[in-house]
């Protein structure tokens, strides 16, 4: 027995003590009662439908993150590719006068010129041949010359749809009627006012002087300071106009050569030859 008491106690022995930590027997009675109640509740409770899915996806659990990342990547690639090669409808709908042309399929949208012309007169909209330039650098006059009635198919959001189908809806008909009325009531006058306003605005813009332009750069100030005594020594007269003329003639090389030869310190002037 004394031999047993002197045996070394290891970490494993200490951890083995944890095995001996057991609850009292009455604990298990309560445990069984609670477990029985939970079991019955689980039997009665309706399980969500996804719990009964076959365990096909159980094996994929560890691949959730890589699969999700791959799906996102694939979706991004497909979306980008579809965005770049997204074709603009190039063929007009049969029987309509709407012709939509695109320069190239991969061209940016801002460079796509959409020509729409009407060959048939609708019942309440005057026929009008229109060239709608969607280019951002297109002159404003083009857009001002565009008739509003030609915008109706574009507003409807269906470039490929026939105007007849678009105008068949009550909303399109009312919009066409309103826009035609506005057009006849003096669209050009309104747009002309806009043009004059913009021209006035441009004129004001050209007259204003930027504050930065009024500032003299330090380099110019320094150059003027160096040139003034130099010009005075060359010309010998204090005439501003002459001095300016001479200062213009002096090359930069000569200027800096003179500066390096002439030095002033305190009450002394030093000239090197």
């Amino acid at each position: 027995m004394s031999h047993d008491r002197k045996r070394p106690v290891t970490l494993e022995d200490l951890l083995r003590l944890k095995r001996a930590e057991r609850p009292a027997p009455e604990f298990w009675d309560r445990f069984d009662r609670e477990l029985r109640a939970k079991q019955l509740a689980a039997l009665v409770q309706k399980r969500p439908w996804w719990r009964d899915l076959p365990p096909v996806f159980a094996g994929l659990r560890r691949y959730h993150v890589p699969l999700g990342a791959a799906a996102v990547l694939a979706l991004t690639v497909v979306a980008v590719r579809n965005y770049v090669v997204m074709p603009v409808p190039a063929t007009p709908a049969p029987g309509t006068g709407l012709a939509v042309t695109s320069r190239t399929e991969t061209q940016p949208i801002s460079e796509i010129a959409i020509e729409s012309s009407r060959t048939e007169a609708s019942s309440n909209v005057a026929p009008l041949a229109v060239v709608a330039a969607v280019e951002t650098d297109a002159p404003v006059e083009n857009s001002s010359a565009m008739g509003f009635s030609s915008v109706i198919p574009l507003i409807a959001g269906t470039l490929g749809a026939s105007p007849a189908a678009v105008e068949s809806t009550p909303l399109a008909r009312s919009m066409a009627a309103n826009l035609a009325a506005v057009e006849t009531a003096g669209t050009r006058m309104l747009l002309g006012r806009v043009d004059t306003f913009e021209a006035r605005l441009d004129g004001n813009r050209s007259n204003t002087i930027e504050p930065l332009q009024q500032m003299t750069s330090p380099a110019e100030v320094r150059l003027a300071r160096y040139r003034s005594p130099l010009v005075a020594t060359i010309s010998g007269e204090p005439n501003d106009r002459t001095g300016e003329r001479i200062a213009r003639r002096i090359s930069d090389d000569r200027l800096y050569d003179q500066i390096s030869r002439i030095g002033a310190r305190g009450d002394r002037v030093q000239v090197r030859f």
Binding site: D4, R7, L14, R16, L17, R19, A20, E21, R22
Partner: peptide
């Protein structure tokens, strides 16, 4: 509570 009646625990 540690079950001190268990032989291994008793020995340790």
């Amino acid at each position: 509570r540690i079950d001190s009646d268990e032989p291994v625990a008793k020995e340790i």
